[in-house]
Nucleic acid binder design. Structure first.
Lengths: 168, 168
DNA sequence: GCGATGGGTTTCCTCAGGGAACCCAACTAC
DNA sequence: GTAGTTGGGTTCCCTGAGGAAACCCATCGC
């Protein structure tokens, strides 16, 4: 929904951001994944304008992130459910939430906890290496050109991911 | 930068999204973390309007995600560097990139690879449980109210994160 | 003195977002 | 049988954010 479409830029972050880099889209996906599936419920929960909600949902369905399903015939009622592609946005939401918890939770602590059903504990999701399982941070990674890499505007494929250092 | 500010909503995703849920912000952070630190370089690389770039950078500095540093005195030249808070957005970028790679990489493959320096392999970052190290997905997590939880518009603190099921 | 460089600010225009009202089919209560 | 409610949108108008391009200004190299 940016004015200049980013979808054609040769960078997966840009492509993902073209869809997801809208404040409402992230919250819609959070709601759908937490069990809110109906238009009116979403509109109420988010306080979003119905027009914009309709546009976002249409876009998400078009992208294959959500599907619109009839859940009863009389009267015909539709609801939105996440596809596999949509469910995998969960990791983006977890990363956003972990970051928000870390930097914006007040004295009261974070507003929500994530319970990991596999181990039964409340958890803070972390980003790990799919190969060795170690933590992946800006400091211990480098970006290299990939097989589908091509150079163009918005394309950065070289250089250490962390040149920056935190200052007081 | 949404019209309705989301910063006051009691949800870390909303708070993070209020800042990060702008298409340009994610790309600016990607660039800064990959080593592009100067205004003009950012403007050229992103193809963003200089006005919007100035506004975004100012916002990011104000939020403590970037710092503006003089790197030479004569003539005075400034550049933008990520703080620790900014560097931790790396995990959000990794999640976005992994998702984009998985769903949008064409036949050619993803445009970039991430090399994990700790183990030396190219990797796909995954979201893991900070407690047991197992994978965290929409299917094996539940969201529960946290210590700082309060109920309000946009606040969802109950219900399984995956009620949805993928359909063909 | 002359142009280039870095880092912006200003101006103008268009179009996306917000709010609120409207729409319509199908129940449901009386 | 008709009035009201619910779900799921669409239409209208208005404001303000984003884009493009021009302008600004201090400093440098020549």
């Amino acid at each position: 929904m940016t004015r200049t479409s980013l979808a054609d830029v040769a960078c997966s972050i840009a492509r993902a951001t073209d869809l997801f880099g809208d404040a409402w889209t992230a919250l819609i996906m959070r709601d759908v994944l937490t069990g809110i599936h109906r238009f009116d419920d979403l509109a109420h929960d988010l306080g979003i304008s119905r027009k914009v909600l309709a546009a976002r949902l249409a876009r998400l369905v078009e992208e294959g992130v959500l599907v619109r399903e009839q859940y009863q015939e009389h009267p015909p009622r539709e609801e939105y459910r996440a596809t596999e592609k949509g469910a995998e946005l969960h990791s983006v939401l977890m990363a956003l939430m972990a970051w928000g918890d870390r930097w914006y939770a007040g004295e009261a602590g974070p507003p929500a906890r994530i319970r990991h059903l596999d181990c039964g504990h409340d958890t803070t999701p972390v980003t790990a290496c799919g190969h060795c399982g170690g933590p992946v941070t800006a400091a211990n990674t480098t970006e290299l050109p990939g097989p589908g890499g091509r150079i163009g505007p918005g394309t950065r494929v070289l250089g250490p991911l962390l040149v920056a250092r935190a200052r007081p």
